[in-house]
């Protein structure tokens, strides 16, 4: 069970330039993977192709062995959920509950099941205090959690989060961790695009680096986040604790403050 991306190339409709070229990667079920890289490196395009919003011009994507080209986006979506970078692009109902229930009702799930999933999604994402509000009156960072709740309710096997930490405060980051743990415990794969290296180092096991429309590295986080040449090529800096550790000449591959302080003591 996995998403297998095989040598895909894609250019957006009406654009001559390719957005990704010959990209390959495999996301196993239950994995936590982060994709890092500069804006324009092809990260969002790659995950949109996995969600089958677009179909690759060349190459194939298999979701649990099913070729996405032979299915519509709507058929793939129950397996691969995608939380957009900008929540405003994703919300289209004028009511929080309606927004969460929209797809569940579309799929004609039993009323009891809908209620259960909705309540669980609201609790996990911590948006209970905002349920009564109009989605566009909810503060932007929390609006993002509404879009996460929508995907949690659908409960796909692969969850893709696009820049979840952007604009989040301490509450948001902690809540995000709750969501990730919940998904992990349910056996879901979580794939995240992020610029936030502390978040990546803390929450993920595997890191994929993208640059100039392609994958330039893929592996265990501690290994990848210490490949300085690769990171430089992708215009990415390692976590601050790693930068400090290197600057003061600590040999261990430090990734967070706890490790750093232990090394100093």
């Amino acid at each position: 069970m996995a998403i297998e991306v095989k040598n895909i190339t894609f250019s957006y409709p009406g654009s001559l330039a390719t957005a990704v070229e010959n990209v390959s990667m495999t996301i196993e079920k239950g994995e936590r993977v982060a994709i890092i890289g500069q804006n324009g490196a092809g990260k969002s395009t790659t995950v949109k192709l996995m969600n089958n919003i677009y179909k690759p011009s060349k190459g194939t994507i298999l979701v649990d062995g099913i070729d996405t080209k032979e299915r519509t986006t709507a058929q793939i979506a129950p397996h691969v959920g995608y939380v957009f970078q900008n929540p405003n692009d994703q919300i289209f109902n004028d009511d929080v509950v309606k927004e969460i229930e929209y797809v569940l009702r579309y799929r004609k799930l039993p009323e009891e099941e809908i209620r259960k999933r909705r309540e669980e999604a609201i609790d996990v994402t911590g948006i209970r205090p905002y349920v009564e509000m109009h989605p566009f009156d909810i503060p932007l960072p929390i609006r993002k959690f509404l879009t996460i709740a929508v995907v949690v309710a659908v409960s796909p096997d692969y969850v893709i989060l696009d820049e979840p930490t952007a604009g989040q405060d301490l509450w948001g980051c902690a809540q995000l961790k709750t969501v990730m743990d919940y998904l992990q415990q349910k056996g879901k794969a979580v794939l995240t695009i992020s610029h936030d290296m502390e978040y990546v180092a803390e929450n993920f096991d595997r890191v994929i680096v993208m640059a100039h429309k392609n994958v330039i590295a893929d592996g265990e986080k501690r290994d990848i986040l210490y490949r300085m040449d690769t990171l430089r090529e992708a215009h990415v800096k390692p976590p601050l604790s790693a930068q400090i550790a290197q600057a003061v000449g600590i040999r261990d591959k430090i990734l967070n403050l706890k490790e750093l302080s232990a090394a100093i003591l």
Partner: peptide
């Protein structure tokens, strides 16, 4: 267009 993309991404058929 944006909303349709979002609908598709969530599993609502908009094509056909």
């Amino acid at each position: 267009n944006c909303v349709r993309e979002s609908q598709r991404a969530r599993g609502i058929e908009t094509e056909g």
